[in-house]
Simulated scan of single mutants.
Amino acid sequence: MTTPSGDRPEDDYWRRPPDDGATDDPKRPPEPGPAGADPSAGYGGPPPSTPPPPGWRPPLHVRAAPPRQLPPQDMAGLDAVEQRAQHVTWVAGAVAGVVLLALLCLLCSRAFR
């Protein structure tokens, strides 16, 4: 870690100027300011702006297109498909349960021999 000591001449550029406005370094460039303004007077504010020409904005479309209609849903068909999916899930769970029960019985019978 380095600490700023002020002994290095390359740090002079970044050092704050004295309060009287005079600079000690002849290599230091003058402070930027508005054209024709005295640099010792301080900040003169932003330059004046000109208003944009009329009609510079893009056209504004306020009304959006109406929403489209969704297709009708077959509620009876959806219920039938959902019941079939539930039966498949129950059957798969029952098969897994039977297989696990058979494995448990097999392991227990070997442990008690």
Rank of each mutant, 00 (worst) to 15 (best):
M1E: 12
M1S: 14
T2V: 11
T2W: 06
T3G: 10
T3M: 10
P4C: 07
S5G: 12
D7N: 12
P9N: 07
D11T: 14
W14A: 14
P17S: 15
A22G: 10
T23V: 12
D24C: 08
P26W: 07
K27F: 15
R28A: 14
R28E: 09
R28C: 11
P30R: 11
P30S: 11
E31Y: 12
P32E: 15
G33M: 04
P34S: 06
A35V: 06
A35T: 05
G36F: 00
D38H: 11
P39Y: 04
A41V: 03
A41T: 09
G44P: 05
G45K: 01
P52T: 08
P52R: 09
P53M: 09
P54A: 08
G55W: 10
P58I: 03
P59Q: 03
H61M: 09
V62L: 10
A64M: 00
P67G: 13
R68G: 15
Q69R: 02
P71L: 00
P71Y: 00
Q73A: 00
D74G: 04
V81K: 09
Q83V: 04
H87L: 13
V88L: 10
V88P: 02
V88M: 11
W90Q: 11
A92C: 10
G93Q: 04
G93D: 05
A94Y: 00
A94T: 08
A96V: 01
V98Y: 07
V99T: 13
V99W: 02
L100Q: 01
L103K: 00
L104H: 05
L106I: 02
S109W: 05
A111K: 10
F112G: 11
F112D: 11
